[in-house]
């Protein structure tokens, strides 16, 4: 990321440099948005719907340029599909840190958003994955239908297309501390 981050900072200062950064944005965002490789990481029930069914023949992630990757180092997108327990929270954070920038997170299902059915009377479930890693798109449901998770991916693509390369050099991504 290093060079790509620095380039726009210098470019913007030269007259007409803004034009170059805009085209650079368009190219980079287009390529990022259309090749969201996701990490094969499912914990509970949502994994069947979000990763297996949606990846299989009827719904087919491949249409959106999404291919699964078994290693976090090759993935751009983490779909948190399922309940995150306190024991797992630390590992989720490590996985997130191992992914290379730019990286995105979709929180899928009630559990990943706010603990879902395990919010009350429960001593071991993390109430929302956004307490440990930043989340870009939330997809509610228990479990969400494959259509809604695909909609979530499209929303994420829209979000990526609005990014500016120059923003990357200014903002540090927020990573919350685990409890």
């Amino acid at each position: 990321m290093g060079v790509v981050q620095k380039v726009p900072v210098y470019l913007e200062k030269i007259p007409g440099g803004g034009l170059i950064t805009t085209s650079l944005d368009a190219v980079l965002n287009w390529s990022r948005a259309s090749s969201l490789w996701y990490l094969l990481f499912g914990t509970a029930c949502c994994a069947i719907e979000g990763l297996m069914c949606t990846g299989a023949s009827r719904y087919d992630y491949d249409r959106f340029g999404m291919i699964f990757r078994a290693s976090p180092r090759q993935a751009d997108l983490m779909i948190v599909a399922g309940t995150i327990t306190n024991k797992m929270a630390k590992r989720v954070k490590i996985l997130y840190e191992q992914m290379s920038e730019p990286k995105y997170v979709i929180a899928m299902g009630g559990c990943a958003i706010r603990g879902g059915p395990f919010y009350y009377d429960c001593y071991s479930v993390l109430r929302g994955v956004d307490l440990v890693i930043p989340v870009d798109v939330y997809v509610p449901g228990c479990p969400p239908r494959p259509e809604s998770i695909l909609e979530g991916c499209l929303k994420l693509q829209q979000k990526i297309k609005k990014q500016k390369v120059s923003d990357w050099s200014k903002t540090e991504k927020f990573i919350p501390e685990p409890k």
């Binding site: 327990t85 024991k87 797992m88 009350y120 071991s124």
Partner: peptide, 11 residues
């Protein structure tokens, strides 16, 4: 094991 212990028996 225990990475998915959701305390269902307590619930």
């Amino acid at each position: 094991i225990g990475f998915l212990h959701r305390s269902i028996e307590k619930i």
